[in-house]
């Protein structure tokens, strides 16, 4: 029994051949191992990362000999001592942590109504506009955007020129803490909206109608229904914004003008300016530790399930 070959589309025959080859290379009896094989690339990537961390951990335990510019042979905790006691490092750490916290809160406050409007609006034109406005900044890199702010906010920038027209002398809008925070909020907003929107989509509009028919005005409906049900989105978005802000490099560097360094800038300086690999490694590890502890705490408080965006609420 041989059906005419032409009856089979060419694609089917190609697939048949591929299947035969696959059968030879990976017999059916191996199939239980297939999922593990597919895990391999991810494991390799994570493995490289872990290996890097071990190397960094090794460096962090050696100090720089300033006379020879070589790393010490023996292990010491001196770098950690310096990082935790030297005023410069504690200032940078405090500035980064505080800044990230402020940026997170402000970003969430801005992102919440934005994503609510995007999810709930009846007008598809408005929804498209909001989405495009959200994605456009993604096409413009962080550095370019920061330079954009230099043009707008600089001493001869657009804002100061406009103020000059009404007789206000130029104000220093750049190279200070608020400028960095402002830049970070602007950079983080799309991330926050993108993480909040799915969580909000998962709240049926009918729930708000129900709340309203049960006697809740919009404030109560927001407080008792929308806000609690958006919690997974808020936690996820907050976590992403906080960790991204804490580890950001370009915006503090450009909008802070070197006077508002965050941890990443301090690490960069250690590696590439003072060439103190040990100190840089120490700061890196501390940053990883602080970030991990914070994520762990959030998981402990809200449950790891909160990041499973909006899906199963059980």
């Amino acid at each position: 029994m041989r059906p005419s070959r032409a009856a089979y589309p060419i694609r089917w025959r190609v697939m048949d051949i591929l299947e035969q080859v696959a059968g030879k290379l990976w017999p059916r009896s191996f199939s239980a191992g297939l999922p593990y094989l597919m895990l391999l690339p991810a494991l390799l990537l994570v493995g490289v990362l872990v290996w890097g961390l071990v190397e960094i951990g090794d460096s962090s335990l050696r100090t720089l000999d300033t006379s020879t510019f070589l790393m010490s042979e023996n292990y010491t905790l001196a770098n950690y001592q310096r990082a935790l006691s030297e005023r410069f490092f504690t200032t940078v750490a405090g500035r980064s942590l505080m800044g990230s916290l402020i940026v997170t809160v402000v970003t969430l406050i801005f992102a919440f109504p934005y994503s609510y409007l995007m999810v709930r609006t009846q007008s598809s034109a408005l929804r498209k506009f909001l989405l495009v406005a959200l994605f456009l900044p993604f096409f413009i890199g962080q550095v370019v955007r920061a330079y954009g702010w230099l043009i707008i906010l600089g001493n001869q920038g657009m804002v100061n020129e406009a103020l000059g027209l009404v007789g206000v002398t130029p104000i220093r809008l750049l190279y200070n803490y608020p400028a960095v925070l402002f830049g970070l909020v602007q950079y983080m907003l799309p991330f926050a909206v993108l993480m909040l929107a799915p969580a909000m989509t998962a709240i049926p509009a009918e729930l708000e109608s129900a709340a309203s028919s049960l006697g809740a005005n919009w404030i109560s409906s927001f407080r008792h229904i929308v806000l609690p049900l958006s919690k997974p989105g808020l936690v996820g978005a907050g976590l992403v914004v906080f960790t991204l802000s804490l580890t950001d490099f370009a915006i503090p560097a450009i909008l802070g003008g070197g006077s508002q360094d965050f941890i990443a800038n301090a690490i960069y300086d250690q590696f590439f300016r003072t060439s103190d690999q040990g100190m840089g490694a120490t700061l890196s590890l501390l940053l990883v530790a602080v970030g991990s502890i914070l994520v762990g705490l959030v998981f402990m408080v809200f449950g790891a399930g909160t990041l499973a965006m909006g899906g199963d609420r059980k």
């Binding site: 129900a210 709340a211 028919s213 049960l214 049900l229 609420r313």
Partner: peptide, 20 residues
């Protein structure tokens, strides 16, 4: 009169119970 000021109880198609 907005919905929340009308004395109307409503059972919705998908019930709209508050899951939290």
């Amino acid at each position: 009169v907005p919905p929340h000021k009308r004395a109307i109880g409503m059972v919705f198609q998908k019930l709209a119970l508050f899951p939290h």
